[in-house]
Nucleic acid binder design. Structure first.
Lengths: 266, 266
DNA sequence: GCCTCTTATCGCTCCAGAGTGTTATGTTAT
DNA sequence: ATAACATAACACTCTGGAGCGATAAGAGGC
């Protein structure tokens, strides 16, 4: 991620992709030297260092003389560049499905998820719209659209997520009440939604309190994963949207526990 | 302004400059047709329309079938693209002067002024720093810097200013207290600072309450102008920084009324 | 219905800036 | 001191996308 604010939903620039790969490599090996990476990726030392600087800025690795070491895995998984790589087609399908829930004139809240980004690309024809978000790439996109009232949710900037968070953000959220909330999480069990990071959970919880209809966007990869912090029971969401590739035997348990699950057609 | 978030402090792209010129042209003539502009600027109809769309998005003109009409002058004067054109060298000098007031570790608040943008370019060597701002181009720049804690002040997005405002923003400001505030206004009399727009005044007033040391950045053009709303007496500011091109006989009255005026060397 | 104005779509040009390597200089361990 | 590592500075390439116009399709006035 070279942090383009009106970022492209789908494709990653070459260096960004390499940085994501390097991050994965470092996470896997725990700790490697710059020269290792030079060999593994076939680029110059200088470029490796530049990539590592960027990854360090994002909090994914820690540099020390002679190499780098990985930070807790949770950080890596939260990394925007990494997430952008994942399940793009599915996210687009989920976005199309979610779009149908929005009517002109509504107020919509979006969290700092790549699924939300995909959704914004479909806003053009549902105007006017009021949109609140704490996600910088989303803000960048929304400023370019007409007939959208953009309500930016400020807060402390996190380079890892490319979004704003912390108490200031939670307070900004609490001052609102929107018709809709679209949000995503890093893991979903049959009964609950989970996320790795405490502060993110704080903001998302605030968002859940601040919307009338709450929609959880889940691509199938999320269903087989787990994460540290329990965000909320699935019953807190009015709808859970999953993609078509989700195995039926993963969907049924959610329904058994009372969740309203909708499947987005590709 | 094609709204680049990590916008260049100094230079304007060709279309952005032309758009600013078209805006001026429209403001002067009150109301013109697309074809008039085709002749006046030597570009195709299509391009004229695209420019006008952008200007309308920014709230500077109103399109109707057959032409465009100007909006209140205040909007034009607030227009970011227009402001970026003005007094670039002076702003750089003022920024260098302001920079000397900042020590590593401080917390700094910046308003949505182009002077603030110039200041950010000098932050690299004064880290660590906590910076709060509601100005989107500033936010874009700051996210790229290391060792800066960025506190984005959210609110309702204004395409004219490319910044966030309104009550949500004022509330976000009120939750803070910073060591320093650098801000600018559109006009300065010997006794007071002025601004054209009510809502902007609201946010700036909140900022004034939320900082210990308040610095007003003024290039000399501001001293010969007036604006509708009285923002605050100059005595509310701890320092007023003006550029070297400011005539002495404009500075003296400020001092006579008790302001601490410092002159930035080019 | 006709004419005028507006918008959509496509393709062309062109250039700023991303991306990278090389070489030179700085820094830190031992 | 010296070798290994890190950064700074510079120069080169190359592409992605901004910017613009021509043409065609669409919308609105009269």
């Amino acid at each position: 991620m070279t942090s383009d604010v009106d970022g492209d939903t789908t494709e990653l620039s070459r260096p960004a992709r390499r940085q994501a790969e390097i991050a994965a490599y470092v996470v896997e090996h725990g700790s490697v030297s710059a020269n290792d990476l030079v060999e593994a990726f076939g680029v110059s030392v200088m470029t490796v260092h530049r990539d590592l600087d960027e990854l360090e800025r994002q909090g994914v690795v820690r540099k020390y003389r002679g190499g780098v070491s990985a930070q807790p895995t949770s950080v890596f998984e939260s990394n925007v560049a990494y997430r952008l790589n994942t399940a793009q087609a599915e996210k687009a399908a989920i976005a199309r499905h979610a779009r149908a829930m929005i009517e002109p004139g509504m107020s919509v809240m979006l969290d700092d998820s790549t699924s939300a980004l995909a959704l914004i690309d479909l806003f053009e024809d549902i105007t006017p719209l009021t949109v609140a978000t704490n996600f910088l790439p989303a803000i960048g996109k929304l400023t370019q659209l007409r007939d959208i009232t953009l309500l930016a949710l400020g807060g402390i900037y996190s380079a890892t997520h490319d979004s704003f968070g912390g108490m200031p953000c939670a307070e900004a959220v609490e001052a609102l009440h929107t018709d809709l909330l679209f949000c995503s999480v890093s893991a979903v069990s049959p009964t609950h939604a989970f996320h790795q990071e405490e502060e993110i959970v704080l903001v998302k919880r605030a968002m859940l309190r601040a919307a009338r209809t709450k929609v959880l966007l889940v691509d199938h990869a999320k269903l087989q994963r787990t994460a540290l912090h329990r965000l909320a029971p699935l019953s807190d969401f009015d709808v859970v949207v999953v993609d078509e590739k989700t195995p039926e035997d993963l969907i049924q348990p959610l329904r058994d526990h009372g969740a309203t699950v909708e499947v987005a057609k590709l």
